[in-house]
Amino acid sequence: MDITDLTEVSRRIRLDTIKAIYHVKTGHPGGALSIADILAVLYFNELNIDVQNPAWPDRDRFILSKGHGCTSLYAALAEKGFFQKEKLLTLRQYGSILQGHPDMKSTPGLDMSSGSLGQGLSIGNGMALAAKLQNKSYRVYVLLGDGELEEGQIWEAAMTASKYHLDNLIAIIDANGLQINGPTDEVMQVEPIDKKFSAFGWNTIVIDGNAIPQILTALKKVKRVKNKPSVIIAKTIKGKGISYMENNIKWHSGVPNPQEYKTALQELEGEL
């Protein structure tokens, strides 16, 4: 898929995300919108997966470690064809295949459950180790939040990935700089993220995580790196695509009112 098409996919992911959250009146729009471009590139250009066979053993794996961002992941999975788009309007409702946080047993195309932060990188290590033990060539992609890096387990996993030379593991940090209690650099100093991972033995790349060409280039580059894991630090804008949500802490979770919703639709549909 070319850049224009991927841009269109990311626009549709954002639109479906905000439609779902508005419809069910619950959800986390900010961190879902910041990762829409990364998800578009992963699901429509990068991941070697088969919609007809979601459990294909040789597929690439994806873990959304920052599970609260799942609405846009659900939108991407629907866009990809794992389930009907109408299901998005059942988000977080009783009996839905789309749980409040990712549940691999409920949602077709979902490789791993998440929701309790800090765990996805260890799980990704396990998947990458399995690929090595089974002599398989699939890759594992783990999308983390920058606030999530405050969890100690991330750094345990960072050491393990490095120790076992997991060059089939690619971590992507959604560095949107905001978390529930405030700007990430005020709540807890996680920067310099690149230097920290580098000190842990990782290959690091810093990009604009809302710029599709940069995401494409970074993913191409990291695949050439041997013997060590790679992390793409994707600087993003929380709430990206809806002007009043951008870089605004209050949209970590929350639902637009009817006027705000109208504005959101105009902005996202206006990008056509």
Binding site: S122, Q134, V140
Partner: peptide, 19 residues
């Protein structure tokens, strides 16, 4: 995994879902 019980359990989960 070294002295890292949380990472050990998470790593096991990843190994498990891959067979």
């Amino acid at each position: 995994v070294g002295i890292a019980e949380q990472d050990m359990v998470g790593t096991a989960a990843g190994l498990s879902v891959c067979g």
